[in-house]
Simulated scan of single mutants.
Amino acid sequence: MSVYSFYIFDRHTECIYSKRFTQAPPPAATKSSSALSNGAVSASLRRANKDSDDAKLVFGTIFSLRRMCKQLGGADDQFLSYRTGEYKLHYFETPTQLRLVMLTSPQVGNMRTVLHQIWSTLFVEYVVKSPLAPTEHKGGKGVGNELFEGGLERFMEVVFRPQPQ
Score class of each variant (00 low, 15 high):
5 S>G: 11
114 V>P: 03
157 E>H: 10
76 D>L: 14
119 W>Q: 12
9 F>M: 04
107 Q>K: 12
141 K>A: 05
132 L>G: 05
7 Y>G: 07
148 F>E: 02
118 I>S: 12
2 S>Y: 10
74 G>S: 11
57 L>M: 11
85 G>H: 15
128 V>F: 13
132 L>K: 13
25 P>R: 13
146 E>M: 14
97 Q>K: 14
97 Q>Y: 11
125 E>G: 08
150 G>N: 15
118 I>G: 11
99 R>H: 10
142 G>D: 08
124 V>L: 10
90 H>K: 12
3 V>Y: 03
163 Q>H: 07
58 V>Q: 07
8 I>K: 07
40 A>I: 01
30 T>S: 08
84 T>F: 06
102 M>L: 11
160 F>L: 05
138 K>N: 10
46 R>H: 02
65 L>G: 02
111 M>S: 00
92 F>G: 02
80 L>H: 15
118 I>M: 12
100 L>T: 00
3 V>S: 06
96 T>G: 11
160 F>P: 06
140 G>D: 08
87 Y>N: 03
17 Y>V: 03
56 K>M: 04
84 T>E: 03
9 F>S: 00
147 L>E: 09
60 G>A: 10
10 D>I: 05
102 M>D: 00
94 T>C: 03
21 F>D: 02
43 A>Q: 02
30 T>N: 08
98 L>Y: 13
40 A>Q: 08
21 F>V: 00
100 L>N: 05
113 T>L: 15
97 Q>E: 05
27 P>E: 05
131 P>K: 10
6 F>K: 10
158 V>M: 09
54 D>W: 10
112 R>E: 14
28 A>V: 01
75 A>H: 13
74 G>L: 10
88 K>A: 03
44 S>Y: 01
149 E>D: 01
55 A>L: 02
68 M>E: 11
52 S>V: 05
110 N>A: 05
85 G>N: 15
142 G>K: 10
158 V>K: 13
14 E>K: 12
66 R>W: 04
24 A>V: 04
145 N>Q: 08
66 R>Y: 03
27 P>S: 05
62 I>K: 13
63 F>W: 13
36 L>M: 14
47 R>G: 02
80 L>N: 14
10 D>L: 09
10 D>N: 15
1 M>Y: 08
23 Q>K: 03
123 F>P: 06
58 V>P: 08
131 P>V: 01
135 T>C: 14
1 M>S: 08
104 T>H: 05
81 S>I: 02
110 N>K: 09
108 V>L: 02
93 E>C: 12
111 M>Y: 03
49 N>R: 15
26 P>T: 04
129 K>P: 04
25 P>A: 10
93 E>Y: 06
